[in-house]
Amino acid sequence: MEYLEAKNKFIQAWGTLGSNWGINKVMAQIHALLLLATEPLSAEEIMEELQMSRGNVNMNLRALMDWGIVKKEFKIGERREYFSTGKDVWDLAKQVSKERRRREIEPILKMLGDVQVVNGENKKEVDEFKKVTGDLFDFSLKVDNTIDKFTKSDQNWFFKLLLKI
C-alpha cells in the first residue's frame, strides 16, 4: 500500500473511531492528520489536505485545544498560526480520559448525589429510587477513581495491573 493511501485510510479510520467514542468525526480526522504530520500544520494546510472549510477546521481545532490534545504554535516571521499534537499515545490516552472524566463522570456523580435527597409518599418507590441511584453512584465513583489512578499513573503500572486481570 502506498503512503498516501495508507495515510488516508488511517485518517478515515481515526475519524470513525473518534465518532464511536463520542468525538466529532471531523475533529478526530484533524487530530489524525496532526498525529501523522512531521511539522506543525497551519489551518490552511489542514483545510487543503482534508478538503474542509475554514470554519469547520477552525471550530474543530478550538475543540481539540479545549480537550488539551492540540496546541497552537507560532513560527518566527510567520503571521499564521500552526497546530500540533503530542505523539505519545500514553499521554494522549491519559489526557482524553481526564477530559472525559471532567465532562461526563463528574457531572453524573454530582447529579446522582443530588437526587439521593428525595422524598415521596410512596415509600417503596422512593426506596427503590434511592437503591438504584445509590448503586449507580457507587459504580460511577469506582469508575471515577479508576480513571483518576490511570491519569496519574505511569505506563508500567497500568500494564502490570492489566496482566493481573
Rank of each mutant, 00 (worst) to 15 (best):
I23K: 12
L36M: 11
L50N: 06
A63H: 03
M27C: 13
L33S: 08
E48D: 14
I30Y: 07
K71D: 04
M52A: 12
E49Q: 14
G55Y: 11
M52R: 15
I23W: 14
A28S: 15
A37F: 13
G55T: 09
A32N: 02
P40H: 10
G15N: 08
P40M: 08
L50A: 09
E48S: 15
F74L: 14
L50C: 08
M59K: 13
N58L: 10
M65W: 01
G15M: 10
M59Q: 08
M52E: 15
K72P: 01
R54P: 00
W21A: 11
S19C: 07
G15W: 07
N58C: 02
E45K: 08
G15Q: 07
L41W: 03
L41T: 05
A43W: 02
L35T: 02
M47S: 06
E48N: 14
T38A: 07
M65T: 05
M59F: 10
L33N: 08
L36G: 02
G22D: 04
M27A: 11
T38V: 06
M52I: 09
I76F: 13
N60Y: 06
R62V: 04
L33W: 09
E48M: 09
L35P: 00
S19M: 10
H31F: 15
A28Y: 05
V70W: 01
Q29T: 09
R54V: 00
S42D: 13
K75Y: 12
L50S: 07
G22S: 08
A43I: 12
E48F: 07
I23F: 15
W21M: 15
L50M: 08
L36T: 05
K25H: 08
E39V: 11
E48T: 14
V70F: 00
